[in-house]
Design a protein around this nucleic acid. Structure first.
Length: 640
RNA sequence: GCCGACGUAGCUCAGAGGUAGAGCAGGUCACUUGUAAUGACCAGGUCGUCCGUUCGAAUCGGACCGUCGGCUCCA
């Protein structure tokens, strides 16, 4: 019988017997590879190692190093977990259990929520299943057969019906031991191939993420091929916890939330307020450089305006106040205010583009359950701007905003980000032509800046397409960053126009855009990104002067005044403590520079410099240190 | 909003149906110190709030407030 030819990832060719399984091919390539194999990729499709290969194909063995291999591995463990859960809780109805970023989960409908103690019992049961080394067996059945099999599980029935509607002829099942699950696969060859895993937490989750649906119980876990990798991952999670902005916020004296004063409302302490001010000042400055005009609008606006904007009717979670028989709404957005200013006089096409910028503080009654430190609050300040322009100016304006966003992110030390373009959703206002034109402008702008982006078809708001950028922090986590949003709705509602060359009024194009998005969240991200070790230009306290004895106090104060005179942020530690203790305190506060001044320095008129990063740098004259400091006080990539 | 867990001193935490404990932080005093914690003493809590059960509640029950983990990741 003729051999079939497999093309391996390195483009080399391998001749094998038809009907050889992927596992066998992996063994031919190398025993080590066969050992590590999780699944195979045949003609670009991830498949079970047990499938026989019948014709020429491209072929790759997937190990845990491949995202596809990871998914197969973790999803297989999710099956084992479901098996274990059913053994311990026979009345549980399994629903779905995918692999996710760092692990996997499985959702169950159970009469009683799982407890933390249940997790260890489930883990123990899982170990039994893994030890039994049961093979995963794939079967295909008709939709009706599948329905019969899962007759007592309405969730599986729903999924089977959906699959049938989507035109699937055959429904695939995977079985290991006694446990059968509806599953697309692929899976590991057998449960014995599983290494290290850990169940992490239980949480409620709605069926298909919709709160109209029943709430299921979700068990999260993570899994790695061996115990060392698992340990390593758990250690990284621990480290991430160390730089949690809520922890650092307390330790570094940045901010507090007061239970008695309201959830989601931030109180900035002196160091936090300083940090915030530095960020805000820089932001304002950068906007002015780019032709934005500062405006300022009230926090309170008559409710009539919120009727016009539509927020009131939509039940937007706003705060209202009634005084003197008049209803006011506290602004959840800055746009209506900016529109009022725009509409305060007739605008000519010659005036456009108009770019109004405001550090606008807004309040939104976010649901209790979603509040999260600085990342999700009820009162926050946006670096908000609205650009009013002609349709022709749109692409150019968007390009400008994208470049602006890039510069800003770079200045704050964010090197990596992902860009998304969201287009027209099924339910949208405005004509197809308007949408097309705007989407084209956004696409052109993205192309012009040469950024790579991901298309999210149908994910735009009903009132316009948008570009959003997620920023990646030092630990590789993604955060919502800049967004640029076209709006066809507000200009209609508020009748925003300009007089064109033809002397006729035209509808102006309106772009909402934020770069830092919310200052609060941005500070949260910044804190975690730097782990509290802010670069000199952002550090609330840049220098701490540490006099060794009382004899050196006066000299130390002279140093402080001179540095303050030069606009540095300096403090002095006058406590009657040892130098070691003072250094420790300053280090814990993550202050970039410490200046030790004792008798020696006083006599020679110098300061002994210690840096947060490099430790003792030795004595030098104060002006030398000031020069060194000045060199570090600018943000990277932005002129200041 | 929903599911679960949690709430004890400024912070980190121990304790537990019979009237609250440690370390750090804070204050006082002594020490005047050379690159990550000097020592001694002192003070500090209506055990988140309210209502109930009980002879007695910080401990048990309920409600509320707040915090934490989740609520897109398709079989």
């Amino acid at each position: 019988m003729a051999q079939i030819t497999l093309t391996l990832p390195d483009k080399s060719l391998l001749e094998v017997e038809p009907g050889s399984t992927a596992q066998q091919v992996a063994e031919m390539i190398g025993p080590r590879l066969a050992e590590d194999a999780m699944a195979a990729e045949v003609n670009g499709e991830v498949v079970d190692l047990t499938i026989p290969l019948e014709q020429d194909a491209t072929f790759a063995v997937l190990t845990f190093d491949d995202p596809g291999g990871q998914r197969v591995y973790r999803h297989s463990i999710a099956h084992v977990m479901a098996d274990a859960v059913l053994r311990l809780f026979p009345q549980a109805k399994p629903t779905i259990g995918p692999a996710i970023e760092d692990g996997f989960y499985y959702d169950f409908d159970v009469p009683e929520p799982f407890t933390e103690e249940d997790l260890s019992r489930i883990e123990a049961q899982m170990h039994h299943i893994i030890d039994a080394d049961a093979p995963f067996i794939r079967r295909e059945v008709s939709a009706q057969q599948a329905r019969d099999l899962f007759a007592d599980n309405p969730y599986k029935i729903e999924m089977i019906n959906d699959l049938e509607e989507e035109g699937e002829q055959q429904i695939s099942l995977y079985q290991h031991g006694e446990f059968v699950d509806l599953c697309r696969g692929p899976h590991l060859p057998s449960t014995g191939k599983m290494g290290a895993f850990k169940l992490l937490s239980v949480a409620g989750a709605y069926w298909r993420g919709d709160e109209a649906n029943p709430m299921l119980q979700r068990i999260y876990g993570t899994a790695y091929p061996n115990a060392q990798m698992l340990e390593e991952h758990l250690k990284q999670v621990q480290q991430a916890l160390q730089r949690d902005h809520r922890k650092l916020g307390r330790e570094l004296g940045l901010f507090t939330f007061f239970e008695e004063a309201g959830a989601g409302l931030v109180y900035y302490h002196p160091y936090g307020a300083m940090l915030r001010q530095i960020v805000c000042d820089f932001t304002v400055q950068q906007h002015l450089k780019r032709g934005y005009q500062l405006v300022r609008t009230p926090h309170l606006i008559k409710s009539d305006i919120w009727e016009t904007s539509g927020h009131a009717q939509q039940g937007y979670p706003m705060y209202y106040t009634d005084v003197g028989g008049q209803s006011y709404g506290i602004k959840p957005m800055n746009c209506p205010g900016h529109i009022l200013i725009y509409n305060s006089k007739t605008r000519s096409y010659r005036d456009l583009p108009i770019r109004y910028f405001e550090l606008g503080t807004v309040y939104r009654h976010e649901r209790g359950g979603v509040l999260h430190g600085l990342m999700r609050v009820r009162g926050f300040t946006q670096d908000d701007a609205h650009i009013f322009c002609t349709p022709d100016q749109l692409a150019g304006e968007i390009t400008g905003v994208i470049r602006f966003a890039q510069d800003m992110l770079k200045a704050f030390g964010f090197e990596e980000y992902s860009v998304y373009l969201s287009t027209r959703p099924p339910k949208a206002m405005g004509s197809g032509e308007v949408w097309e034109r705007a989407t084209e402008a956004l696409t052109d702008a993205l192309d012009m800046t040469g950024m790579e982006y991901e298309l999210k078809p149908g994910e735009g708001a009903f009132y316009g397409p948008k570009i959003d950028i997620s920023i990646k922090d030092a630990l590789g986590r993604l955060w919502q960053g800049p967004t640029i949003q076209c709006d066809f709705n507000m200009p209609e509602r508020f009748d925003v126009t300009y007089i064109g060359e033809d002397g006729q009024p035209h509808r102006a194009v309106m772009v909402h855009r934020v770069v830092l998005a919310g200052i609060e969240r941005f500070l949260g991200v910044l804190i975690e990104h730097y782990g509290g070790n802010f670069p000199v230009w952002l550090a609330p306290v840049q220098v701490k002067v540490l006099p060794i004895t009382d004899r050196n106090l006066e000299y130390a104060h002279q140093i402080v005044s001179q540095l303050r005179e030069a606009d540095f942020r300096v403090e002095i530690d006058e406590a009657p403590a040892t130098l070691q203790a003072k250094i420790r305190d300053a280090e814990l506060m993550k202050i970039p520079y410490m200046l030790v001044v004792g008798d020696r320095e006083q006599e020679s008129g110098q300061v002994a410099v210690r840096s947060r990063e490099a430790g003792d740098l030795g004595p030098r004259p104060l002006p030398d240190f000031a020069d060194l400091l000045k060199k570090e006080t600018g943000p990277k990539g932005a002129n200041r």
